[in-house]
Structures are given as C-alpha cells and as structure tokens.
Write a protein that binds this DNA or RNA. Structure first.
Length: 204
DNA sequence: ATAACGATTAGCT
DNA sequence: GCTAATCGTTATA
C-alpha cells in the first residue's frame, strides 16, 4: 500500500535464488482479491535451487506440478502438501533455470481483519503468517495462484520494495521440513523478529 | 492401478 | 517432543 514502496521489477527475481531469498526480507507482499486487500512484511524465506538441489521439487526435472519453476522469473508457484496446506514460492533466475523462493513467514501490516478471517478464530496476530502455509492462507492463495505474474500491472499478488533488511540483521540457517541437502544454509530470517515461523532457536 | 510420502500445522504429553 | 490429519504428486508395475 502507500508507503510500501515501488513494485519490485522482474530483474529483482532474475538473480541467484539465494541472493533473492535474502533480499526479500523486509519486502512487502500484497494480495488484492474480490474480498479485500492484505499485505505482509516478509521476515522468513527459503531458497530452492532447482535441478542441482535435491530438496527442490524441480530436482528430477520438470513435472506437471513443478513446470512453472522452469519458466521465467517473477511467477508464483503454489503447491498443495500434507493433504491440507498450500505454500507459495516466487520463481527466480533466468528462464529455464528452475529455482524459487519459498515465502515462509511475515508480519501482516495491512488488511489484518481479512487475514484473521482467513485463519482459524483466536489466532494471535503474531502467528497469523508464521509459517509458509499460514502465510499463504493470509494471502488467500491456493494452487490456482500458480503462474500468476507478480510483476505484471494489475496482478492480484505483487511485491513491493518495503524496507530492505541489512545483512547484519539477517540470520541464515538450515531449511525446514526437508530430508535432502539439509546442510545448505538457505533459510533466511530477520534476527529477533517475533513474526518468524514458530519459535526456533537462534542461529538455527 | 496402486502405493508411499510430503518445502506443515495444531494439539496434546 | 510426538503425532494425527488428509490428498495430490510421483514413481512403479
């Protein structure tokens, strides 16, 4: 919204996915749907580096589900998992290189009422978007959002420049919920921020 | 056609 | 810390 800065250009996403994941902290994701507007300040992300990354959905080449990851940067990849959850990624790197950043957590800064309505009743505000599935829920995203161009004018989901987080305020640690390539420290979060996905030890 | 499992979460011990 | 919930995707036959 006003004050959230300019819409991030496609070139922002057309870079090394690890750099993009770190640089997305402090940026604003905004969702505009028929039922309203919600915006979230990102505080936690993860990088997935495509065919070279055993933890990535793109690891063994394109499938119907992961096809969008192999396309141009700036598109959404929303997948359904555990029979009940949706998680949202933004495709990064040049066309043909399947990498993406998983949006893991954030602070709802606008449209809090709508975000609350999309979550179970009674959820604390600091937990509204704490976790990738919770964040996707706040934004009203499901697999139908896959392919959305977050750079296009009038897109229902866009990213704005917000206030970038300086490197010395960023913690890097292992990614969550994966069993392969666990050692790659490609989860990034804002140090000491209360809106990160559920309480974890510092440095983790 | 079928089986195994997952980039999770909430609730309970 | 442990586990049920729940179904699309993927691999295998």
């Amino acid at each position: 919204m006003a004050g959230a800065g300019r819409v991030l250009p496609r070139a922002f996403f057309d870079r090394d996915v690890v750099d993009v994941a770190r640089d997305l902290l402090g940026r604003i994701v905004e969702s505009r749907t028929p039922d309203g507007f919600v915006s979230v300040r990102l505080v936690e992300t993860e990088a997935y580096a495509g065919e070279d990354d055993p933890a990535s959905h793109a690891w063994r080449g394109p499938t119907p589900r992961s096809a969008v990851m192999f396309g141009p940067p700036g598109r959404l990849y929303v997948y359904f998992t555990y029979g009940m959850h949706h998680c949202a990624n933004v495709v990064c790197g040049p066309d043909g290189i399947a990498s993406a950043v998983l949006l893991r957590a954030g602070e709802v800064v606008d449209g809090v009422d709508l975000a609350r309505a999309r979550r179970r009743p009674g959820v604390a505000d600091r937990q509204l978007a704490s976790g990738p599935a919770n964040l996707a829920m706040c934004l009203g995203l499901d697999t139908g959002g896959t392919g959305t161009d977050v750079v296009a004018a009038g897109s229902p989901l866009r990213l704005r420049s917000g206030d970038p987080v300086p490197d010395d305020a960023v913690l890097a640690g292992p990614r969550v919920g994966i069993t392969r390539a666990v050692e790659r420290p490609w989860r990034f979060r804002v140090a000491g921020n209360p809106y990160v996905s559920r309480p974890r030890r510092a440095g983790g």
